[in-house]
Design a protein around this nucleic acid. Structure first.
Lengths: 214, 214
DNA sequence: CCCAAAATGTTGTAATTACAACATACTTTC
DNA sequence: GAAAGTATGTTGTAATTACAACATTTTGGG
C-alpha cells in the first residue's frame, strides 16, 4: 500500500507514523485498484467506508434514467470521497462513483471510529470535519456555477472562481471540454460554441484547458 | 433566548442542560431577530459564526449579476447554516442568506472551539460532523435534482426524492411555486405549465404544495 | 362577505439550447 | 510519419425554455 500519500492527507494531519499505522489497522484499511471507467459505487448502495484516492482520480456522477451524465465532482490523488455516506451509514448513495483514470482507492471503516480512545478520536474527528466542510464548499461552488440560466453565465461564474482561487487571470482548468460541459450541465457542443463566441467577443482567450480572462 | 429549540438541536445531542449553558457561554452565543426579506449574510462576507435558526426560516441563495436568484437551500427552525464558512474562517461566502420569513438566529463563535477541554470538544465535534455531513447530502440532493436538462425531469427527480423520504406517494412539499422554481432553477411559469401538463398526462395530481404521484 | 394583495395558471412569441452530423485538430501507437 | 482514435470546433434544425402579459384562484384583513 502506498502509505506516503495517506501520511500527507488531511485525515492524518498532526498524526505521527506510528499513530497512523495503528489507526489504519484499527479502521481496517484495505486498498483496491480500478481501471479507467470502472464503477466503484453505484446509486442505491450503502457503505460505511471512507474512501481515499492514493493514485489516479474518480468522478462523482449523477446518471439519470435517460442516460444524461452530470459530473458532480472530480476527486483526485490525495482526496477523499463518500464521507457523507460513510458517516451516515443508513443513507443510500444518490450518485455513482467511477474511475476517471486507472486508480487506487483505500477504504477505511467508519464503524470502527467508536472503538478509538477519546483523545485520538477527537483529533480524527477534527480532521474529518475539515474534510466534510471542504467538500461542502465544493458542492456549494457547483451550485453557484450552475445557477446562471445561460451557458455564458455559467462559464463566467466558473472561470471567475478558478481565477480567484489561483490569484491569476491566466490558469489551467482540471477539466477537458466534455467534463466541463458535464460539470456546468450544458451540451459539449454548445460549450465549445460559446467559448468561441466569448473569444470573438474579446472576453477570454483559451486553448485546450488553458484559459486567460481579458 | 429560546433555549428549548437549541436543547433539541443536533449540535447539543447527548449534552445535559448544565453543559449546554456552559457551552453557550463559552461559544459567545448571541441571538438576533430579522424581518422577512432581511439579508443576514451577503456574498463575500467572512464569518466564524455557526448559525442556528430558533424561529422562522432562511434561504441560502445565489444571486447573480443579472438578477437571477437560485435558492440553494431552505433552512428552517432547529437547523444550522453557514457551518462551512464558520469552520473555515478564511473562506469568503459565495452565497447570500436571507430571512424567508420573520426569524431569530443564534450565532455561535467557532473560534472558541479551541478553548474547550478535549472530552467536551470531541463530543461537540462528533455532533458538528453530523451537521456538516447532513448538509452535504442536502447539497448533493440539489445537484441531483437539477441535473436533468428538462423541466419535467427535474420535477420528477425532486418529487421522487420527497416521496422516498416520506415513504408515501402522497405528500406535502416545503416550497411554494416560486421557491420550487428557484430550487429547480427553472422559470416559475414554466414550472406551473409543466405541472399542468404532467397532471393532464396522468403522472401526478397536485394542489398547491400537496402532491400525489400516480 | 368583500376587497386588495398575493399566488398560481395560461398563452404566445422571441431567444436559447439540444442534438445530430460533420469538419478539423491533436495524440498515440506502431 | 501514417493511421487510428480521441478531442474539439462548427453549423443547421428541431425542441425547449425564457419572458412578458394577462387570467384565474387563493388568502388575509377589514
Amino acid at each position: 500500500m502506498d502509505i506516503s500519500v495517506l501520511h500527507n492527507s488531511i485525515l492524518f494531519k498532526d498524526f505521527d507514523d506510528t499513530e497512523i499505522s495503528e489507526l489504519l489497522k484499527a479502521l481496517n484499511a484495505a486498498e483496491k485498484k480500478y481501471n479507467k471507467g470502472a464503477m466503484i459505487f453505484s446509486s442505491g448502495e450503502i457503505t460505511d467506508k471512507l474512501c481515499f484516492v492514493t493514485a489516479g482520480g474518480v468522478t462523482i456522477e449523477s446518471n439519470d434514467m435517460w442516460g444524461n451524465r452530470t459530473i458532480l465532482n472530480l476527486v483526485g490523488k490525495g482526496q477523499f470521497f463518500a464521507e457523507s455516506y460513510a458517516l451516515l451509514p443508513d443513507v443510500p448513495m444518490l450518485v455513482d462513483v467511477c474511475a476517471a483514470e486507472d486508480c487506487s482507492i483505500v477504504f477505511l471503516s467508519m464503524k470502527s471510529l467508536a472503538d478509538l480512545n477519546d483523545t485520538i478520536r477527537a483529533r480524527l474527528l477534527a480532521n474529518l470535519l475539515t474534510i466534510t466542510t471542504r467538500k461542502n464548499l465544493h458542492l456549494s461552488s457547483r451550485s453557484f456555477h450552475t445557477a446562471p440560466r445561460q451557458v455564458r453565465g455559467r462559464i463566467m461564474a466558473y472561470l471567475n472562481t478558478v481565477s480567484v482561487q489561483k490569484h491569476s487571470r491566466e490558469f489551467d482548468i482540471p477539466f477537458d471540454r466534455q467534463q466541463l460541459a458535464d460539470y456546468l450541465n450544458v451540451e459539449r457542443s454548445v460549450l465549445s460554441n460559446e467559448l468561441s463566441k466569448m473569444q470573438r467577443d474579446g472576453l477570454i482567450r483559451c486553448r485546450k484547458n488553458h484559459f486567460e480572462i481579458i
